[in-house]
Design a protein around this nucleic acid. Structure first.
Lengths: 149, 149
DNA sequence: AACCACCCCTCAAGCGCTTGAGGTCAACGG
DNA sequence: CCGTTGACCTCAAGCGCTTGAGGGGTGGTT
């Protein structure tokens, strides 16, 4: 039985140490066993496996409550496989929307930077051109879109 | 002098009503004038102009404190144009990194969905193939990357 | 006049972490 | 043997909103 420290687990699966503690606090994982004398967390293989999955789900922006559902389904095995698939596909759609939104925003940022650069250089013509392009970019953005999740 | 309601401004610039109130609370904008008898907020042209900019900056993930800097610089005019440009370009780089991270995560999600779908269909071969591809996708993700900002 | 539907208001709490303060334990060098 | 890292611990507060509770004002119907 391996018994990794919080730092090792953090590096391994890319979740910060506070996040690991937080996930334990809210009962997503664990309770994680402790080193008798120091009281430090020692993560076993099962914990790490679960955390790897959680890290990926989190990375794609899944909410905690959906993670709970996913883990519960996983524990129940095959019977829920269609549900698992749909949970993930819905999430994938959300991520795609976020990517599209971000690309639009990126265009805006770059144009706005060009505008200030033109001002900086005292290039009135370039400044006017940028100013003219900006409203189009704003129009291209889905305004209602969430900022970052 | 126009005097838009909070709902109108919200729709116009894509910030939620609570967010508009919040931005006023923390002094990013305003204080916004009020309708004498009802106490409702009435936004003027200057407010709306500022909010349009803020909506875009927020949409690209700029933090509140950077927005304050941006607005302060804007008020000071040309002298800070190079600074403005750099503030925006730094932000653009962050957004690009986020997009790359999200695309990697999307691939992971889709593969994981395929895995559960294979399980659902009882297709052991497809399941094994998906299982084999997943670790590569995980390896391709920048694990340390922030989930969404 | 009473009722309803809206729009707006102000708190207060929740979300999913991050950051920071303050303290313990274990191994190391001087 | 003492002092210093360094990794860990536990709160508590902060971030940037969102959500929800509890209420008021206005306008149009019955």
């Amino acid at each position: 039985m391996v018994a990794l420290s919080i730092q090792e687990v953090s590096r391994h699966c890319g979740l910060s140490e506070p996040t690991l503690r937080y996930y334990e606090d809210i009962g997503l994982i664990g309770p994680v066993s402790r080193d008798e004398r120091s009281g430090h967390r020692r993560y076993g293989t099962a914990d790490v496996d679960t955390l790897e999955v959680l890290a990926c789900l989190r990375a794609v922006g899944m909410r905690i409550e959906d993670m709970r559902v996913y883990l519960a389904n996983r524990a129940r095995g095959l019977s829920t496989s269609a549900e698992q698939r749909d949970l993930l596909l819905r999430q994938a759609e959300r991520v795609e929307a976020e990517i599209r939104a971000k690309q639009a925003r990126l265009g805006y940022l770059r144009e706005k930077a060009a505008l200030w650069d033109a001002r900086h250089r005292g290039d009135a013509e370039a400044e006017a051109a940028s100013s003219a392009r900006l409203p189009l970019l704003i129009a291209g953005m889905e305004l209602g879109a969430s900022p970052a999740r």
